[in-house]
Design a protein around this nucleic acid. Structure first.
Lengths: 144, 144
DNA sequence: ATTTAATGCTTTCTAAAAAAACGCAATATG
DNA sequence: CATATTGCGTTTTTTTAGAAAGCATTAAAT
């Protein structure tokens, strides 16, 4: 499961992406609209800024805004930044690889399958971007 | 990432599946061979038994063995049992569904994509079984 | 029956991580 | 200068993971 941190990040990014003209938005506004604890959100946005996904301006008229085009921000990037590995096992991770202790990787059936799982995930998460999730897709109406 | 608990479970299940004739195996033996803390393993095996994946016999000559054929035990089943949801968001989980607080699901772009991710995962994890991972696939030799 | 070899089960402990709050510093605007 | 805002290290709280302890129960062998 995604941590709250990453979930909040996605909500904040969606909110920012929906603003016109990429104008600075107050942390407090995002916090209120998206019901995210203010101080927690502050930290999250700061991390996103350090990763050069967002940028910010201090003082009056300041706030947070995108440093790059939302369509160039992969979901996978945000997840790795805030939650770490996307893979289910670190011995299969591309960005956070660690050898597993009692497993030789060759000849480990679990390893092979977890690579498949990883690839299936990345195929989606590296393709889809903040722009994709920010666009409300109300035209797809589910019949209940 | 999979918890240690689930990783240990997979290792133990692989070990049991590789035994001939489904004979009872001591917890202590699995613990030693797979380097899993004994008391922790005890709890894990017990959970697997309660889920009717394994069975056990007490007393001399006792131990753990499969209650069903390893080829009928999906990886997804084990993961759900020990780690909970496979989905990345609970609002998208089939077995552990919970409504998300600030999201209406229809019209939430994240929701739709996380459903795709879930399905991609389940396609693999509900198809592959303990029998699949227990079979060492040494014939696939990676060239280093 | 008694002994011994095993698992069964509840509880507790510890450590780490996640989630959140605090307080003041730094900076930009007007 | 006054005010609005983010920056950022520290601290606190809560939750979860990981592991251990200890006694109860069951089965088999003798």
């Amino acid at each position: 499961m995604l941590s709250k941190k990453t979930q909040y990040a996605f909500q904040a990014l969606m909110y920012l992406a929906q603003k016109k003209n990429n104008e600075p938005v107050l942390i407090a506004e995002i916090s209120k609209k998206k019901k995210i604890p203010l101080k927690f959100l502050e930290n999250i946005l700061l991390e996103l800024k350090k990763a050069e996904i967002l940028d910010s301006k201090k003082g009056k008229g300041g706030g947070y805004f995108f440093a790059k085009n939302p369509k160039d921000v992969q979901l996978a990037t945000v997840m790795r930044l805030l939650d770490g590995p996307i893979s289910l096992l670190s011995c299969v991770s591309l960005y956070f690889y660690e050898k597993c202790n009692n497993c030789d990787e060759r000849g480990c059936g679990l390893h092979l399958i977890m690579e498949q799982v990883r690839d299936a995930n990345l195929k989606i998460l590296e393709k889809k971007t903040i722009a994709d999730i920010a666009t409300k897709q109300n035209h797809i109406v589910k019949s209940v």
